[in-house]
């Protein structure tokens, strides 16, 4: 009897985990496929029958090819530079904006915040042509600046940080003012350290979006020298390797791995940041 009840208690649990595992597998499938292809030789990839496990391993050849025939490390360095620059500039812009919207009293504050919300609603693709023309007029197309400038102001970042800043008690800021801190010092010494979860969450959003972005670099940049990883892979396919899917997939694995590692390291922070904004 007790055995039966313990089984019946476990059934929903097993069911739940089963469903989660299935959806997880569904999301992972492209990645598994990518890793599998990156380990297979060319003839294995185009073989008529389908099998996940390579019949013979040529992982070493594929990964070497990816590194040798394309400046993969250069793409990665470009990606790190561009993402870091974007995130840094976004922070410099968003943090004071968010602080003003969350904690200061001034005329037109609500209108300004409404403008920020509207800014979130506009898809970046809609701005691609105006941005392109603007950068053309500035004469900075096909430079690092063209990859960074359009993303300097993040409406989403302002919104996310504003929501978090609002949860920091006013009394703490008033104490800081009485202790003699100026407004910028309050931002740097009080607001920033107290908002690390929100900043980490925003950082992950920003870095993931721009690391993976293919759309904008494809428009703004033609030069392999300054390509970000996603664009680099594309150029590399066109010019050098043609149909050699194995090295191409190896390249894809190489550009995805840093992101996965970064996400795993910051996972807890990411969830904290999301949960805290959702609860407001």
């Amino acid at each position: 009897m007790s055995k039966l009840s313990s089984i019946s208690r476990k059934v929903p649990q097993i069911l739940r985990h089963g469903i989660l595992a299935c959806t997880g597998l569904f999301a992972l499938l492209p990645f598994i496929w990518m890793v599998s292809l990156s380990l297979k030789p060319q003839e294995d990839i185009f073989a008529a029958d389908f099998h996940l496990w390579p019949s013979q391993f040529s992982g070493v050849e594929n990964y070497t090819a990816a590194f040798v025939s394309a400046p993969m490390l250069h793409f990665l360095a470009n990606g790190i530079f561009v993402c870091a620059a974007i995130f840094l500039v976004q922070l410099i812009v968003c943090v004071p904006c968010a602080y003003a919207l969350a904690k200061l009293r001034f005329c037109g504050k609500d209108t300004l915040f409404a403008a920020v919300l509207v800014g979130i609603l506009i898809p970046p693709q809609a701005l691609a042509i105006p941005h392109f023309i603007m950068l053309y007029l500035f004469g900075i197309l096909n430079t690092y600046a063209s990859l960074i400038v359009p993303w300097m102001i993040s409406a989403f970042g302002i919104f996310l940080l504003r929501q978090f800043f609002r949860s920091i008690p006013d009394e703490t800021l008033q104490a800081a003012r009485l202790d003699g801190l100026g407004e910028f010092e309050i931002i740097w010494r009080i607001m920033l350290p107290m908002s690390t979860p929100a900043i980490a969450a925003f950082g992950i959003f920003s870095v993931v979006a721009h690391w993976n972005d293919l759309f904008w670099p494809l428009i703004a940049v033609r030069d392999q020298e300054i390509s970000t990883p996603a664009l680099g892979i594309l150029l590399f396919r066109d010019d050098e390797t043609g149909q050699s899917l194995g090295p191409l997939m190896a390249g894809s694995v190489i550009i995805v791995t840093p992101l996965l590692l970064a996400f795993l390291a910051a996972q807890r922070r990411f969830i904290d940041g999301m949960a805290s904004t959702a609860a407001k």
Binding site: P169, E171, T172, Q174, A175, A176, L178, R189, M194
Partner: peptide, 13 residues
Amino acid sequence: VAMVFQSYALYPH
């Protein structure tokens, strides 16, 4: 002037 607040308003970090 110095002020002591109800919530103490210490800097948690």
